[in-house]
């Protein structure tokens, strides 16, 4: 009964339709064309560099997404294709065109969308107030999603060699059916990212 309740709530949650897929619960919604793209306002701060713009993602197929970040007023800043365990950089402005920055973007985006843990081995634990799913991405890397059933806040923590690298907080809209905003914070260097959903 508890599992059923937890599953039902998880179906209602998620980063559009990508995050629920993490839990292997509802794949049907991914086939709806309206859910294959999303637009978010992005605020990205890394060291002394600040960036604002729009993050636009599109599902190309079940295991590939394309994400671009564009300035509100004009041209693109970043254009990247996300695969489950790799990426292809189409474009990045000079200031961002560093392997460490792009790799960090990639890790952040595939973790937010849940693309990197889609086929990973997982271990689920359920308590009265919390569902936790621990994905083993590799020998040293884990991604742990936890969903608080009481206050409908979901978190994800990316762990490398047992050390917390970054956390993601998912906040839900009034109807609690879709993620309204996302906040990601790195713990090993000064970097954070806030995403807020926009309906065009």
């Amino acid at each position: 009964m508890l599992r059923l309740l937890a599953s039902s709530i998880l179906v209602l949650l998620g980063f559009e339709c990508i995050y629920p897929m993490q839990f292997g619960i509802d794949k049907t919604c991914l086939t709806q064309p309206n859910d294959s793209t999303g637009v978010y306002a992005i605020q990205y701060n890394i060291l002394t560099y600040n960036l604002t713009g729009l993050l636009i993602y599109k599902k190309l197929n079940d295991s590939t997404y394309r994400a671009i970040i564009t300035s509100e007023m004009g041209p693109k800043i970043l254009d990247i294709i996300l695969y489950q365990d790799d990426y292809k950089l189409n474009f990045a402005i000079k200031q961002l065109k560093r392997k460490v920055v792009i790799k960090s973007f990639y890790n952040d985006l595939v973790s937010i969308t849940g693309l990197n843990s889609r086929h990973a081995a997982s271990n689920t634990s359920v308590t009265d107030s919390m569902v936790t799913i621990n994905y083993t991405l590799s020998k040293k890397n884990n991604l742990i999603y936890s969903n608080n059933l009481i206050n409908t806040i979901s978190n994800a923590t990316y762990i490398v060699k047992g050390e917390k690298k970054f956390t993601i907080h998912y906040f839900y809209g009034q109807k609690n059916t879709q993620v309204d905003s996302i906040f990601l914070k790195h713990w090993d260097y000064k970097m954070d990212m806030e995403l807020r959903k926009i309906k065009f």
Binding site: N50, L51, E72, E194, R196
Partner: peptide, 29 residues
């Protein structure tokens, strides 16, 4: 979203955030 250019400073207000940066720190701006 609010974008202000005041000589060589850029002020951005987005949601609850306010960012005040030099134009030199962001080429696109």
């Amino acid at each position: 979203y609010l974008f202000i250019l005041n000589n060589d400073r850029v002020i951005i207000k987005s949601n609850s955030h306010e960012t005040n940066i030099s134009t030199n720190s962001n080429k696109v701006f």
